[in-house]
Amino acid sequence: MSNRKRTSQRFVALCMLGVLLFNYPILALFNVPGTLFGVPVLYAYMFIAWGALIALTALVVRADG
């Protein structure tokens, strides 16, 4: 499998992961009262998941060279 093709597939997989992370039912797990680091759980989760997704994207790009 060529490098380019592998990178494309990694991006598609990341996209699917993101769609899962930011939709029902995963979101419902975090739709609860309480805080995490002083921030409401749902918002903390969203920004952490968002940041992680961006970091993974940067990794995929770097691996492509």
Partner: peptide, 28 residues
């Protein structure tokens, strides 16, 4: 953040916003 959200949570209307999907039909 901690102080701000703690004060906001004291208000019922804002506390409801912290779990926004609750009770909203078709929210998701």
């Amino acid at each position: 953040f901690g102080d701000l959200f703690a004060r906001a949570a004291a208000e019922p209307s804002m506390r409801a916003m912290m779990t926004p999907f609750e009770g909203v039909a078709g929210g998701y």
